[in-house]
Amino acid sequence: MLKILVVEDEFISRTLLIEMMATYGICHVAVDGREAMDVLRRSFEHGERYDLVCLDIMMPEMDGQEVLTEIRTMERQLGLSGRQATKVIMTTALTDSQSIMKAFAEGHCEAYLTKPIDRSKLIATLRDLNLIE
C-alpha cells in the first residue's frame, strides 16, 4: 500500500481526493503548505517518506509551488533522486500554461491534474507513475 499525503485547503476537494486515493494506500492530510512541510520534514527525519504527495497549488500560508521546491531541496540534501524521489501530483483549478510550466520546471513534479479531479485520469496518472498496476 502506498503512503500518500493529500495537501488541500478546500474541504470538498480534499474529501473527494482522499476517497479516490484510499483504495491505493494510507492517506494523511495537510490543510495548508506550512502544515504539509511540518509533516514532510518529520517523515524525512524518521525515514518514513511518502510515496506520493497530491499537492494543491493555491493554498494559504505557503503555496504548492513553494512546498514542491522545499520537497526537492530536502531530497537533494539527502541524496535522493530519480526513483527514490517522492512522486508529486499537482492538483489545482488553474489551467493557465504559466502554472503548468512552473510546476514541471526542472523536473519538480511528475504530473498535473486540474479540478475537479477525474477518477479515471487520476488512476491513469498513478499507473503512468508506476505507483499502481
Rank of each mutant, 00 (worst) to 15 (best):
A103R: 01
V67Q: 04
D38E: 14
E66I: 07
T23H: 07
L126A: 09
T91Q: 12
E106V: 10
T69W: 03
R42K: 11
P60D: 13
M1C: 07
L5K: 13
T114W: 04
S43A: 15
E19D: 13
A36I: 05
G107Q: 06
S99V: 03
K102L: 06
L52R: 09
E10R: 04
D51S: 15
M1G: 12
M74D: 01
M59L: 04
N130D: 15
E66H: 08
R83T: 12
A111D: 07
L2A: 06
E48I: 07
D128W: 09
G64P: 00
I117S: 03
Q65H: 15
M74T: 06
E106F: 10
C109T: 13
C109R: 03
G64Y: 05
L129V: 10
L55W: 02
L78S: 11
L68R: 09
L78A: 14
M101G: 01
Y112K: 06
G82A: 01
C109Y: 04
N130S: 15
D128P: 02
E35K: 10
Q77H: 12
V7L: 05
Y112I: 04
I117L: 14
M20R: 06
V6I: 09
I12T: 03
V39P: 00
R14K: 08
S97N: 10
S13R: 01
G25H: 06
M90F: 02
D32H: 14
G33F: 09
E75H: 08
I71A: 06
S97M: 10
K102Y: 00
V29E: 13
M90E: 01
F104Y: 14
M90S: 05
M62V: 10
Y24N: 03
L68P: 00
V88A: 10
A124Y: 03
T69Q: 13
G82V: 00
G25F: 04
E66S: 15
H108R: 14
E61Q: 08
E19N: 13
M58I: 07
G107Y: 02
S97Y: 00
G82P: 00
E35T: 13
G33K: 10
V39G: 02
L68D: 05
R14L: 05
K121M: 15
E75T: 09
T69M: 11
R76I: 04
I26D: 12
L5H: 11
L68N: 12
E70A: 14
T125S: 09
A22D: 07
M21T: 08
C27D: 00
K3A: 12
S99H: 13
M74Q: 08
T114Q: 09
